[in-house]
Structure formats: C-alpha cells, structure tokens
Amino acid sequence: MTDGTADPGFVSETEEAEATEEAEAAEEATVTLRVWRGDAAGGDLVDYTLPANEGEVVLDVVHRIQATLAPDLACRWNCKAGKCGSCSSEINGKPGLMCMTRVDELPEGPITVTPMRTFPILRDLVTDVSFNYEVAKRVPAFAPLPAGPEGYRMQQVDVERGQEFRKCIECFLCQDVCHVIRDHEDNKQHYAGPRFFIRLAELEMHPLDTNDRRELVRQRMGIGLCNITKCCTEVCPEHIKITDNAIIPLKERVVDSSYDPVAWLGRKILGRHKRTAEEAAAAAPH
C-alpha cells in the first residue's frame, strides 16, 4: 500500500493483534460487587465477581448476582428508572439510587454496596424506613379555606412555586445522609429531616393553606438541629434544592415567628396571633 490509499479488505497483523487483544479484554472484563450481607444479628461484606456488561447500572449487577450467584440476596427495587425511590443504598459509601448509578462511571476496583446507614437493617440491602412514615403522620395536612362558588382558584405563579417540592420520590436518601439522625440516633425523637422540611415548606408556601406551622417546625420538627451542610441537596436524585429552597426559607420563617424582635413588635402592634405548635399539630393525621 505505497500510494497511501486504504484497502478496506486489508487488515494488518498489528491491527489484527490489537483487535484480538481488545476482544479478549472485553471477554475477560469483570465487575466485582462487594455487597453487605446480613441482618440485625450481624453481617459482612461479600465479594461477587461477574462478567462486565456495557452500560449496566449497579442494580443490573445486583440482579445478575441474584440470578446466578446468590438467589437469597435481598434488595428492594421497583421501577428501575429513578422514579420509585425503592433501590436507595450506599454505593462506595455515598448514598444513591442503584438504578441510576452506572458501573462504568465508578472508579476501578470492587464496588461497595451497603444498605442505608440511618435506618434499622432488615436484611442485606433492605432497611426499615418506617421512621419516615411515622414522621409523615406528624405533619399537619393541607388546611384550605372553604371553597368559593367557583371552587379553588390559584394563579400560575403560586402553582409553580411548589412544583419543585412535588418532585420528591421519597427515596429517603436525604434522610439517610443527614448527619443529624445518621450519627445521632436520639435526635430521631424530635427531628423531621430534609424530606419533611420539603413537605412543610410546600405547605407553608401554599397560597390556599391556612395553618401556621412555624412553631411546630421549631419545637417539634427540630429545624434548629439542621446546620445546613447541604448533604441532602447533594444526594437528591431529583435535584431538588432542598437546603436553599425549603430548609433555609423555613428557618427564616421561624426567625420571623420566634427570633426577630421587630417582627414580634409588629405582631403585638397589629394584634396578629401566632399559632402554637399544639394548634398547628391538631391538623396532623396522627
């Protein structure tokens, strides 16, 4: 081939050798998942090595482990599309959804998959997240005024405000990563956590809602325990700006109601009533 034109049928020995090497490498490529296996009695990390498949997410590999190596591996999952919030776990120590974490985006070497640390273990990768459901019962429900003759009417600008918060898929990764309860179990008694601060912010910003939950948020939901380190925002798979758009606005509303002397004076002069935590909580389902 001295004239520089390529012969489509010609493959040099070097290219052939490279192609063979690549094919062999692809054949030999493996992925190792280091999965925590155990229950409340104890457990350990167990390595599972399988052939690597292109484009897989961690949940795919977990399913292949279930299908081939460990049929008794417990794992919670549902939609495999990042919308049900079931497959929350910790991948290489970082809270995330297994179905949204691509294997080829993780560093070389074994991938550690462990259950969410903040909640009690049931088995393997499955945790008991009922703490969150208990907290949910303590959040006072939407309390609108009676509907007018035309029903309820809202301006688009008011509708849009709460849409971000409604994206929450309740994966509880924000609750898992929040060090207030992750590292201090005793705080679970009086701390709602980021997921419920989103809910409370949504209600407090709702134009039709009549409840005033600020004292409740301060006294019983523990907004003061949050030190705004923004980990909840970092792990949210829906990219909700939890800290900037929900927690800090809630904190500022609590400042209005409890720590701002000018606001206090204004309430006294105008005779405005601040609803107590008990009054606000009366609308809670539990």
């Binding site: 229950d39 462990t114 259950p115 640390r117 009690p120 273990i121 703490f131 907290v135 679970k188 008694q189």
Partner: peptide
C-alpha cells in the same frame, strides 16, 4: 411529642 420508632441495629 408523638414517639417515633428509634433504635434497631443498623446495617453495613
């Protein structure tokens, strides 16, 4: 406040 279930062995 209304007590929530706390405690339990953590995994990992």
């Amino acid at each position: 406040v209304t007590p929530v279930a706390i405690g339990g062995t953590r995994g990992g």
